[in-house]
Design a protein around this nucleic acid. Structure first.
Lengths: 340, 340
DNA sequence: TTGAGAGTTCGAACCGGTTCGACATTCAGG
DNA sequence: CCTGAATGTCGAACCGGTTCGAACTCTCAA
C-alpha cells in the first residue's frame, strides 16, 4: 500500500509538500501539483483513514445506533437507517452501524474510542439511557424521536400530536361519530416510546372537542396475536365505523382481518394508518395514512449533525427540536360511515 | 480525553510499560499492573481507535456492503444485515455499513483507505462487479450469494438447487401433478441473481423426473403489480394445485390474492415459499416454506471472515464454498390436491 | 544595492498508540 | 563469589498522515 511518503518520493518533493498539494491548504506551484497528482495516480495512493483520523481527530464516520428491540417492528426501522446512511454518504461520511442490544455500552465504546465524529440515535425513548452517555461523550448527537430532556442534542420527530388530531378530524369531517385507535403494544410505551401516547392523547382530546367517541387499545407487535387483537376490538365495539392504526404490525395484519370478517374499506369501515409510503408499498397496504417520513427524518438528523461536526453552527448555538408536520396520504380507504 | 501517556504518568511508569500492562504481551509486576489499572479507571481511559489502527494495522471493523437495489425486497435484506452485525459484535468487531448504490466505488474507498479489516458482501451476483475490486484489495472477503468465480473469497449460500428439488418433491409426494413456480422479477435474474434460476432449473429437472407439470413465471417485486401477476398466473393455469413461491414480494401479497379469489390453503391450493421464519412472522405468512436462514448465513460469513482476518487459517488455505441445506418448515399450507 | 514581500518548499513536531532492543535487578546454580 | 538466565522496565522508533515555522528564491520598488 502506497503512503504519502511514496507519493512524495515519486514526485521528488517532501511529504509535507505532497500533503499540501493534495489538500490545497497552501499555495503550491502548478508543476509540483501536477507531479504529485501524477504520482498519486501511478501508485494508486489513498490516504490511510486511521492515520488521518489520528492527525486531524476527524474520522468522517457517523455512528448509527439502531436498537432492534423485542417487540418493535423491524422493517419500519430499516427506512430510517437508509435515510441516515444515504444522506451521510452524500455528505462524505461513512456509517458505523450499531445494532447491539445494550445501546449504552455500545455508545460508550464508539465515542470513547473516537471511532466516530458524531452519533445518530434512532428510536429514542422518553427517558433514554443513552442520552446521559451521549452528553458526557462531548460529541454531537442527533436524535430521531423525542425524549423528555433535549438538552445538548438536536431532535427530530414527527409531530405525533398533530398526527393524532389529523386522524380524528379527518374521520370526524366525514361524519364518523365512533372510532377506535390501535396503538403500539404496551411494552413499547412502557419502555418509553412516548410518541404512542403523544398521538393517543392528542387524538382523545380532539375527539372530546368534536364530541365523538374514541376507543383506544394497544395491539401486539407480533403475528398472529395482533390479528386477534384487531378482531377482539371489532367484536367489542361493533358500532365503530373508523379505525386509526398507529401500529405497523396491526396495519400489516389488517387486510387479512378485514377479509376474514368480510369487510372492505371504506365501504364498511374507514381506515387511517400512520406509516411511510414505502412501508405501504412493501406491505401492499391500501389504507390512507399519515406519512411518517422516516427517510426525511433520517436526512434531517444527519444534515444537522454534520453541520455541528463541521462547526458550521457555533458550539453555543441552541440545539433544535424540529417536528415534521404530518400529512395525510389519501389512498381512498376513508369515506362516509356506513349507516347502522 | 485521556491518553495512554496520562495513564502512564498517573501510574508513575513509562508509556510502553502502561501499554504492556494493559495488553499483557510482556510480563509486568503485579504492583505496576494494579497501579496502571487504577489509573485507567480514574481517568476513564479508552484507547484511541485511530491510533491503535495506525499502530497495529487492525481496525476491528468489518465492512458490510448491502446494496438496496431498485426491485429487491428490502426487508429480506435486513435480516442478513442483522445476522452479520450481531455476529461481528460478538467477535469484537464493529460494522461499517455501506448502502451506496455504487458498490464498486464504495468498496474501493473502504478497502484502499484501510477503514476495515475485511468485508462481507451481501446479495452477490453471478458476475459481481465488486469481486475484482475485492480481490485486488488484498483484504479478506466473505460473500453471501454464489458468484461464477469464487477464487479468493469465502462463499456462503443456501443450496438453492436442493431447495428447488425439495419444493417439487414435497408436492409430488402429496399427489400434486400440476404446479407453478413464481420466481423473482426478470430484472433480478438479468442483474445476475443466479440463485433464481438455480432453484428454477433444479425444480424443472425434478418435475421432469417425477413426470409432473411445472409452470414457471417471474413475478414483480412491487405492489400492487405482483398481485396482478399472481392473479394472471392462476387465471392462466386453472388446473394448478400447488404454488411454489421464490419471491418475497409475491409471498407477502399472496394472502390478499387468495382471499380475493376465495381460495384457502391448503384446501384449494397448496403453497410452499422460500423465505425465513422471521420473515414469515413479520408478514404473517401462513405458508410452509424453505427456510432461507439469513441470520445463519450472515453468521457463517462473519465467522469465517474473522478467522481469516485473525490469521487462524493459513493464507494459502483454500477458500470455502459452503451451502446451507434447505429445510422445509411445515406451517400446514400443503396437503393433497383438490379433486378436479 | 538593498530590503520588503510574495510565492514555494522543506524539516520537524505531533496525533496516540504498539513494539523492539537494551538495561537493570533479582535469583538460582556451580 | 561469580555467572547466566529470568524478570521487569524504559527509551526510542514506527505506523501515516497534518501542520507550523522557517528558509529559500525571485521580483520589484526604494
Amino acid at each position: 500500500m502506497a503512503t504519502i511518503g511514496d507519493v512524495a518520493q515519486a514526485a521528488g518533493v517532501s511529504r509535507s509538500t505532497a500533503s499540501y498539494a493534495l489538500s490545497g491548504k497552501r499555495a503550491i506551484s502548478a508543476d509540483v501539483r501536477r507531479r504529485v497528482e501524477e504520482a498519486v495516480r501511478e501508485l494508486g495512493y489513498t490516504p490511510n483513514a486511521g492515520a488521518r483520523a489520528l492527525a486531524t481527530s476527524q474520522t468522517m464516520v457517523i455512528g448509527l445506533l439502531a436498537q432492534f428491540l423485542e417487540d418493535e417492528f423491524a422493517p419500519a426501522m430499516l427506512q430510517y437507517m437508509l435515510g441516515v446512511s444515504n444522506t451521510a454518504r452524500e455528505l462524505g461520511y461513512d456509517i458505523l452501524l450499531v445494532t447491539e442490544a445494550d445501546g449504552t455500552r455500545a455508545l460508550r465504546r464508539i465515542t470513547d474510542s473516537r471511532m466516530v465524529d458524531g452519533v445518530v440515535l434512532l428510536n429514542v425513548a422518553e427517558r433514554d439511557e443513552r442520552l446521559p452517555i451521549l452528553r458526557a461523550a462531548g460529541q454531537p448527537g442527533a436524535l430521531v424521536g423525542l425524549p423528555a430532556d433535549c438538552t445538548g442534542v438536536d431532535v427530530f420527530d414527527l409531530d405525533f400530536e398533530e398526527a393524532g388530531r389529523l386522524m380524528v378530524d379527518h374521520l370526524h369531517r366525514l361524519g364518523h361519530r365512533e372510532v377506535a385507535l390501535v396503538s403500539q403494544p404496551e411494552h413499547v410505551t412502557e419502555r418509553g416510546g412516548a410518541y404512542v401516547w403523544r398521538l393517543q392523547n392528542a387524538a382523545l382530546e380532539a375527539a372530546k372537542a368534536r364530541g365523538i367517541t374514541l376507543h383506544t387499545t394497544s395491539g401486539s407487535s407480533h403475528q398472529p396475536d395482533v390479528g386477534r387483537d384487531l378482531n377482539a376490538l371489532l367484536d367489542a365495539h361493533p358500532a365503530v365505523t373508523g379505525l386509526l392504526i398507529n401500529n405497523e404490525a396491526a396495519a400489516a395484519a389488517l387486510p387479512t382481518v378485514l377479509h376474514e370478517r368480510g369487510l372492505t374499506a371504506p365501504k364498511d369501515l374507514s381506515v387511517v394508518g400512520r406509516y411511510s409510503d414505502e412501508f405501504a408499498r412493501t406491505f401492499s397496504l391500501p389504507y390512507s395514512s399519515i406519512e411518517s417520513a422516516p427517510d426525511r427524518l433520517g436526512r434531517m438528523a444527519v444534515r444537522q449533525l454534520v453541520r455541528r461536526i463541521e462547526g458550521e453552527v457555533a458550539a453555543d448555538e441552541p440545539h433544535v427540536v424540529r417536528f415534521v408536520t404530518p400529512e395525510l396520504v389519501d389512498r381512498g380507504s376513508t369515506g362516509v360511515p356506513r349507516t347502522a
